[in-house]
Design a protein around this nucleic acid. Structure first.
Lengths: 339, 339
DNA sequence: TTTCAACACGAAAACGTTATAGTCGGTTTT
DNA sequence: AAAACCGACTATAACGTTTTCGTGTTGAAA
């Protein structure tokens, strides 16, 4: 088995110096045409490709960007990855993905790994556990060491870096406003616990929509779910006997579960109760009735994040001004709301 | 902004040599306790962490494994990634993911990138376009250069390496057999075009189940879909007026679309027609009726692939015997088949 | 006093590149 | 014919590590 060939081996084989080979392959004018051709032919024959690691070390840049996300089996995150990947590749960057599995410790490890030379910068959405602990020293640390970081979706205010978020609050507002415009008066909210930043924001949007329309915020109509795995039962229990005409859920799963629970309780969606979810995933389209949702445009988000990061990587100046890009959501109305 | 500190800087600062610093940090017996403590304290203060790139170059191993998949916004692949990631991390490896977007050219680029020093080996599922072209020289090339490769799901017989597949044919067989046991006689198949290896295998399983039970294979009951994006219309058209009592679909999407089409055509699932899909995704569980499927155990698949790869990476001997692991599927019966 | 370990450290090579700065024989310039 | 130049190379340093092989200074044994 032939091992990957190096410049040194080519040089030895052709009895020239390493520098000559390097230059010849870069088509340098310093090398005679004859020699260049000879070297190129030989290199091609042995399928020479420069070693990335060596290049990275030499150039002190890896042309690689890291992604740290809490979970990969998750439609939204994969769309973001796709967006990142797309623009990264376009700009000649590769992508390395690390999963925190929503664990703080793993996030710290990932960060350390990515920051120790493996990448030029990274894009991350913080783990749930991290948001709960409110411990962001690891992120601040790498930033202070000069590693550019872009946060998306679950961002942290106290960490100073570029950020890309959607207008969670406004997206929720619009959804609830839509329900109100349909004459819904008793709108339930199914949200996550407050330390998840996006859950909190969406809850705020819900409340604002109500108060703006002079509707009372009734805490009895608000459910905050901690444990996603048992959401179905929680939601059933919550909806039982509630007199409502609409449900706004902060994610797709909760919305689907709500519809199932409602159906079980003998209520028809959308005739008796309208339902709007958040995040447009695969289920939303397929579900019957198809789900109305607030679309987060994950791919755009990833693309924007990648642009921000690469721009920072390639700008000469050490710009200390950071920006937070807020992307609009859009409301996709399907069959789960009455017309 | 303090840049990442290096051994050299520490050495200079403490007025010792680089070797001393290196040894001290590794707690070498060669260095006096005093010096070691001094150096360690300093290193800790400046949060010294060795540079991965330099280590990779020196050790000629990156402790990184690559993954090349056709698509990331895809439940099955993400479960595989999760499985890979899990065992990789356990064994001290990191994971770098490249997407081919089902494009041959991009797959070639990914392969080149990963093979040029960035990873110690990789795990891949080939792009649709590659299977169509039947051009596998790029994969053979890297293998011949000594890069360990493990293929999963969409594997190529003529490429010699370790492989992990599920028993596609047998999984399909079991599903169809189940339908036959329910007294279904007119079972339609919704598959992909034949060059997609798994589609072909599942089709074979379908046919075998029929013939084993002395049922005739009726090509009129078989639909092969090329363009996934317009599958809904294709399926509707196909099912229109067909006299069938069951549908077996080779993926989740097709199964869901089939149910929708059937409903549209006035047939009840599961009372009039039973439906079984392939691949247990998010939609299967949520859908109403919930979908019976052949579960592919993606996470196990990823875990197995990672084990195979790492084992090869860490074995001294250049074992030339490759293995193909066949994982069992399991049939998950939910509401889309009559009881 | 000489010899020899033991100790504590440093120098240098190596991993694979690229860029800068030589080198050397030959040709042009004046 | 000496000075300058040019073409075609080579040597070397550098990126950040680790590791092997020194090496100079002790203190003790002979």
């Amino acid at each position: 088995m032939k091992r990957k060939i190096t410049l040194k081996q080519i040089a030895k084989e052709l009895d020239v110096s390493v520098s000559t080979v390097s230059k010849a392959l870069k088509d340098s004018a310093e090398i005679s045409v004859d020699t260049k051709e000879k070297i190129k032919a030989f290199a091609k024959l042995y399928n020479y490709k420069p070693n990335n690691i060596a290049l990275s070390l030499k150039n002190r840049k890896t042309k690689t960007i890291g992604i740290i996300i809490p979970e990969i089996v998750h439609h939204f995150f994969t769309t973001v990855i796709r967006g990142i990947e797309h623009v990264a590749n376009e700009k000649g960057y590769n992508v390395i993905i690390c999963l925190s599995n929503n664990s703080f410790d793993k996030e710290v490890l990932n960060l350390e790994f990515l920051a120790n030379g493996s990448t030029d910068g990274f894009i991350m959405s913080v783990a749930k556990e991290t948001q709960q602990k409110e411990d962001y020293h690891h992120i601040k640390e790498v930033i202070s060491q000069g590693m550019p970081v872009v946060m998306f979706d679950r961002v942290i205010d106290e960490v100073i870096c570029d950020k890309v978020v959607i207008s969670d609050k406004h997206g929720a507002f619009e959804a609830v406003q839509y329900l109100i415009d349909l004459q819904c008066k008793k709108i339930a909210l199914i949200s996550t616990v407050d330390y998840v930043s996006v859950g909190k924001l969406r809850t705020a949007g819900y409340k604002e929509a109500l108060t703006t329309n002079d509707l009372e915020v009734n805490e009895d109509l608000i459910l905050k779910i901690e444990d996603v795995d048992h959401s179905q039962e929680k939601i059933e229990e919550f909806l039982k006997g509630k007199d409502i005409d609409a449900v706004f859920a902060v994610n797709e799963q909760f919305a689907v579960n709500a519809i199932k629970a409602l159906t079980k309780l003998g209520k028809k969606v959308p005739n008796d109760v309208s339902v709007i979810g958040f995040t447009d995933g695969v289920v939303s389209k397929s579900f019957i009735p198809s789900l109305s949702t607030v679309n987060q445009h994950g791919e755009d988000m990833g693309a924007k994040a990648a642009h921000l990061l690469i721009e920072r990587l390639e700008s000469e100046t050490e710009e200390q001004i950071f920006q937070t890009t807020v992307l609009d959501t859009s409301l996709i109305i399907r069959d789960s709301v009455k017309k």
